[in-house]
Design a protein around this nucleic acid. Structure first.
Length: 203
DNA sequence: CACATGATCGCCT
DNA sequence: GGCGATCATGTGG
């Protein structure tokens, strides 16, 4: 693929030592907006060559499917690229934007309901620049997530997993989503969530 | 600080 | 053929 899948070595962590517990399938079957809220403060981790790398999610956006003009599944679009959005909640949907950046999404709800949550920013546990993962493209680059990971199941024993909230409680902020000026009325829907206390949000 | 622009390519019209 | 769920860099105030 275009992007490299090697994670930034400074993001190395041990999910077990941090006391992280994996999110179960039922977590992802909830309303998409609810999942987006609950993922702020949750953790994402990726295994690469036998070691784990990860960070605490601090910013997300909900994409609501056929009725949401900003969503790739708007109007019921169903192409090879978007197909993972139609999978059961708990799968990963990764796409390429602007020919060079990957964006990672967590698919929600039941199989056949194409909704998802975009992971926009994360905060590393170690000593790295505050904005290292501040933005969907940077988050993917830092963890080495590429379009080759699209369709993966996040539940079970795969190389990309999500864990429940751990660490300081997020102070939730809400705003319209970013970068969707073309989306008509949906442009102003308050579906972006972030931890107001985190220096790692994208803006 | 606020824009403005180029990079780069898969997807949809 | 146009454009995008972005980012880094550059300009000017």
């Amino acid at each position: 693929m275009i992007a490299k899948n090697r994670p930034d070595a400074r993001l190395a962590l041990d999910p077990g030592a941090l006391g992280l517990s994996e999110l179960p399938r039922r977590f992802y079957r909830r309303e998409t907006e609810e999942v987006a809220r609950r993922l702020v403060g949750a953790w994402i981790a990726r295994r690469w060559r036998g070691r784990w790398y990860g960070a605490r999610i601090v910013e997300t956006e909900a994409y609501l499917g056929p009725s949401d003009r900003a969503a790739h599944s708007w109007g019921g679009r169903r192409t090879a690229r978007v197909e993972p959005m139609y999978a059961e909640g708990g799968h990963l949907y990764v796409f390429l934007v602007y020919g060079m950046h990957c964006c990672a999404n967590v698919v929600t709800r039941a199989e056949g309901v194409p909704e998802a949550v975009l992971l926009r920013a994360a905060e590393a546990a170690g000593d790295v620049p505050a904005k290292l993962l501040a933005g969907p493209g940077k988050l993917c680059a830092g963890l080495g997530i590429t379009t080759g990971d699209s369709g993966r199941d996040l539940v079970g024993d795969g190389p990309i997993r999500l864990f429940g909230r751990r660490g300081r409680a997020p102070v939730l902020g809400v705003s319209p989503r970013i970068g969707i000026d073309y989306a008509g009325a949906a442009k102003s829907w308050p579906l972006r969530f972030y931890d107001s206390n985190s220096p790692a949000v994208s803006r």
